[in-house]
Every structure is written in structure tokens, then in C-alpha cells.
Design a protein around this nucleic acid. Structure first.
Length: 353
DNA sequence: TACGCAATAT
DNA sequence: AATATTGCGT
């Protein structure tokens, strides 16, 4: 295999420059040694399959990637099979019928790059509705993929109008460039009574929500619109915020029946993934030394941003045992992923405002 | 239009 | 059962 040109070596060197399927096949076809050829093809197929597995979680967001990968895999496999079966020195023609066949399925397949590294959509933070039927990804894809290039731009009539707000000229400086992760159009576009796709409140989203709440002086005084504007999340609608706020209010109320206790703290501490008031933290760190004995070890000290900026804000809507319950409240919203930068706040307490 | 609440859907 | 969406009155 020493004779193989570097760009075809198919090893994992970052220098490997992907080609279109057809040009790849063309180059492979020039290789005389059948076993070399087959192994190269197989190696590539393996990589494609691996890629496919990675993308699988996002098949709804990246349907075309799935199609392309699938096509490429099929094509290369066939080529490989043909090589082995004939076991004669292959000629250029060998992949020609292949192209034809492909053409029947996907006419524009030809010039498409094979490297569908999921580079494009790294912005996901979570995908809530993962369908189990991995087998049927094709069918599910086809159902709503028809309007190809609109894929990313539209959500649903309702959202569309509000969609711009986040990235309107001044909003462009989205601080993390956060866009809400919406498994857009997961449901068939043609469904008449199309119910809006569920907004998934990832920890990050919720974090922004809570931050906005804090800045606005608490959940009782903040209004959905204000919150949404502060959150700076592209695609987030007033209704969604309103809904979340409603639930938030409900829960905070339920969790602390007597809002009377003005356990005012302008500082909350994130300890072991739990937001709590300063004194709460001190107590609990006394009691259980399990979490962190180091004075400031894994502790994150978070000052309520409004510590100095917001005038007379009621700080804690509750404290007490609320945290244990509130954990469950939003616990389901999104299971903290390992790569979730906000893993720590996944179980954030509502008592923080 | 924006809000809050309640009913309804998932 | 929990949470999101929709409807409706204000």
C-alpha cells in the first residue's frame, strides 16, 4: 500500500482531503491491485458508516447528510463487491454503471462532497425527541424534507414572525450565539393541525431564562417579552417564554407557600449543581463533607448580576427544602449531558431569584 | 399586542 | 405526572 497516494490513504490523518464520490471512485479504479482497491474501499465505507452513526442522532436536523452518506456507502460497497467478484483488473467502466444507478435515485449526487462532517451543526445543545427507530430514518426524513433549502430557515408559521427578533441587527451579538435548539419540523409539514413543535428547555436555555429573570427583578415582576428580549435567544417566542414563566411561577409558589420569608441574598452559590443561598450553602457544607471540603473547591460563586445593578429586588422567592423538589421540577427538562457546559446548573434551584 | 390563567395536548 | 401549547378574557 505504499504506492497509494497520500490523499487516498484513508488513514485518519487530518490531511486527508475528501473528494466527491465519483472522483474517489475514479482514483480507486486506477489502482491495479485488487486487494488494495478493496481494502481502500472498505476502509472508506467504514469511515462513512462511522460518520453515519455519529450523525444518526441528528438525522432529523441533517437529513441530507444521512442521504448522502447512505448513498455513498451503498455505492462504495457495491463497488467493492464488484471488485472482489470480478477480480479482474478493473477499468474505468466499472463505476460508470454505479453512477447511473445513483442517478436514478439522486440526480445531483455527482458533484457532492463526501465529507459531511457534522461541522455545520455543532450548535446543538440537545435533541429532545430522539426517535428510536433508527432503521426508518429514511422514511422519516423524506416526510418533511421536501422543501430542501428551507430547512433551516423556517420553523412554523407561528414562530416565523418572531424568529427575527433575536438576530435583528443589534441582536446579532448574541453572546454565545445561542440559538434555541429546535428540532424543527420534526412533524410532517403537511399535517393540517400542525401543533407547534415542542420547545425543549435545555439547561442553557433555562439558565438564560433565570438570568433574565434575575435581571428583571424576579419571576413575579418579569414579563415574558422582557425575558425573551433579555435572553437573546434566536427563535424563542413570547409564547414559549410565557409558558415557561407560568410553570416557573407555579412551581416556585408551590415550593414555597410562604413567600414571606425574605431570605434575601444577593449572592447565590452553585454548589454541587445546586443553587442555594449563601447561608444554605454554609449549612450544608458543614453537614455533609462529602461534596467538597475544600473551602472554595468546586464551588462556584455566582453573584446575582443584579447585585448592584438592580435596585430593590426581592431576592429569594423561596429557599428551604425547595431545592430538593425543584430539582425534580426541571430535572427532566434536559438530562445533563457530559458535554453540557452547564451541567452544573442542570439542577438549578428556583430559589435563586 | 402583551399578559395571565386555564384547558388541552404530548 | 410533568411540561409544553393553545385558547380566551382582560
Amino acid at each position: 500500500m505504499g504506492s497509494v497516494p497520500p490523499e487516498l490513504s484513508l488513514d485518519f490523518r487530518p490531511t486527508f482531503v475528501p473528494k466527491t464520490i465519483s472522483s474517489f471512485l475514479k482514483e480507486v479504479s486506477l489502482i491495479g491491485n485488487v486487494s488494495d482497491k478493496v481494502s481502500i474501499l472498505d476502509a472508506f465505507v467504514k469511515r462513512l458508516e462511522e460518520e453515519m452513526r455519529k450523525i444518526d442522532a441528528f438525522k432529523r436536523e441533517l437529513p441530507l447528510c444521512m442521504i448522502l452518506l447512505n448513498d455513498a456507502i451503498v455505492a462504495l460497497k457495491e463497488e467493492s463487491v464488484q471488485c472482489m467478484s470480478r477480480n479482474v483488473e478493473p477499468v474505468l467502466e466499472e463505476f460508470i454503471p454505479l453512477k447511473n444507478k445513483k442517478g436514478s435515485n439522486q440526480s445531483e449526487e455527482d458533484g457532492v462532497l463526501v465529507t459531511n462532517k457534522k461541522e455545520k451543526d455543532s450548535n446543538n445543545s440537545s435533541n429532545c425527541n430522539n426517535n428510536k427507530d433508527k432503521k426508518n430514518w429514511m422514511s422519516s426524513v423524506q416526510l418533511w424534507n421536501t422543501d430542501d433549502d428551507d430547512n433551516c430557515s423556517i420553523d412554523r408559521k407561528l414562530d416565523t414572525k418572531q424568529r427575527n427578533i433575536g438576530d435583528s441587527t443589534q441582536g446579532c451579538k448574541n453572546r454565545g450565539g445561542v440559538t434555541a435548539c429546535m428540532p424543527f419540523k420534526a412533524d410532517l409539514g403537511f399535517a393540517k393541525t400542525a401543533r407547534k413543535q415542542r420547545r425543549c428547555w435545555s439547561p442553557e436555555l433555562h439558565c438564560r431564562f433565570v438570568n433574565a429573570l434575575q435581571q428583571l427583578g424576579g419571576s413575579q415582576v418579569a414579563t415574558p417579552k422582557q425575558i425573551r428580549e433579555l435572553m437573546q435567544v434566536d427563535g424563542l417566542t413570547n409564547d414559549e417564554v410565557k409558558s415557561h414563566l407560568q410553570k416557573y411561577r407555579l412551581n416556585t409558589r408551590r415550593l414555597s407557600p410562604s413567600t414571606t420569608s425574605p431570605a434575601n441574598q444577593s449572592v447565590v452559590v452553585l454548589r454541587g449543581g445546586l443553587w442555594m443561598s449563601q447561608d444554605q450553602h454554609e449549612e450544608s457544607s458543614k453537614g455533609s463533607s462529602s461534596q467538597s471540603d475544600s473551602p472554595q473547591g468546586p464551588l462556584l460563586l455566582a453573584t446575582n448580576t443584579r447585585g448592584n445593578s438592580i435596585p430593590g429586588v426581592q431576592s429569594m422567592e423561596d429557599d428551604e427544602d425547595a431545592k430538593s423538589k425543584s430539582n425534580s421540577w426541571k430535572g427532566h427538562i434536559h438530562k445533563p449531558g457530559k458535554d453540557d457546559c452547564i451541567e452544573s446548573i442542570a439542577s438549578m434551584n428556583f430559589a435563586d431569584i
